[in-house]
Amino acid sequence: MAPHQPPGEPGTGPLITFARSGLTVAWSPRHRSLLDLADACDVPTRWSCRTGVCHTCRTPLLSGDVEYAPDPLEPPPAGQALICCSRPPPRRRAGPVRRDPRHTCCQSGHRP
């Protein structure tokens, strides 16, 4: 199945782009993590976290920020995110910026 918007009401949060799949989705807190969002959108991802193999879901973070809940025992290297336990941070009010700080772009959606 090709990647698609998740079922249900569209999110109203920050935009998440799965770069390799070319899919951009507004975040919704009904998803517990970026991995849950990717699953809901049928974006192909690598993971074994749910079976106890940590860091398999490590994905390049091309732009934006993530926060972790829970915090990983071992954080990923700079420029990477563990999508099983990460999500976009809450929106912040800020002055003018050149790029949209609400937009997180990760490279998930690899083509097998």
Results as ranks from 00 to 15, higher is better:
residue 89 P to K: 09
residue 84 C to N: 03
residue 14 P to G: 15
residue 100 D to E: 10
residue 70 P to Y: 07
residue 48 S to I: 00
residue 85 C to I: 12
residue 47 W to P: 02
residue 91 R to E: 13
residue 36 D to S: 10
residue 102 R to S: 14
residue 14 P to E: 06
residue 101 P to A: 07
residue 31 H to E: 06
residue 19 A to P: 00
residue 20 R to M: 06
residue 24 T to Y: 02
residue 74 E to Y: 12
residue 62 L to W: 01
residue 18 F to K: 00
residue 75 P to N: 11
residue 98 R to P: 02
residue 33 S to A: 07
residue 98 R to K: 11
residue 55 H to S: 15
residue 70 P to H: 08
residue 59 T to P: 07
residue 108 S to V: 11
residue 24 T to G: 02
residue 9 E to M: 10
residue 38 A to K: 08
residue 50 R to A: 13
residue 92 R to T: 09
residue 34 L to C: 01
residue 103 H to F: 04
residue 12 T to A: 07
residue 93 R to Y: 03
residue 43 V to H: 09
residue 17 T to L: 03
residue 72 P to R: 03
residue 36 D to R: 11
residue 64 G to R: 02
residue 28 S to I: 00
residue 51 T to M: 12
residue 37 L to N: 04
residue 19 A to K: 12
residue 107 Q to C: 05
residue 40 A to N: 08
residue 21 S to N: 04
residue 96 P to H: 11
residue 84 C to R: 01
residue 19 A to M: 04
residue 41 C to P: 10
residue 67 E to N: 01
residue 27 W to R: 12
residue 31 H to W: 15
residue 22 G to Q: 06
residue 76 P to F: 05
residue 95 G to Y: 01
residue 85 C to W: 03
residue 52 G to L: 11
residue 29 P to A: 11
residue 51 T to D: 13
residue 39 D to P: 00
residue 61 L to W: 08
residue 95 G to Q: 07
residue 58 R to Q: 13
residue 35 L to N: 02
residue 33 S to Y: 08
residue 55 H to L: 12
residue 64 G to E: 01
residue 10 P to N: 04
residue 43 V to N: 09
residue 17 T to M: 04
residue 78 A to W: 05
residue 74 E to F: 12
residue 51 T to Y: 10
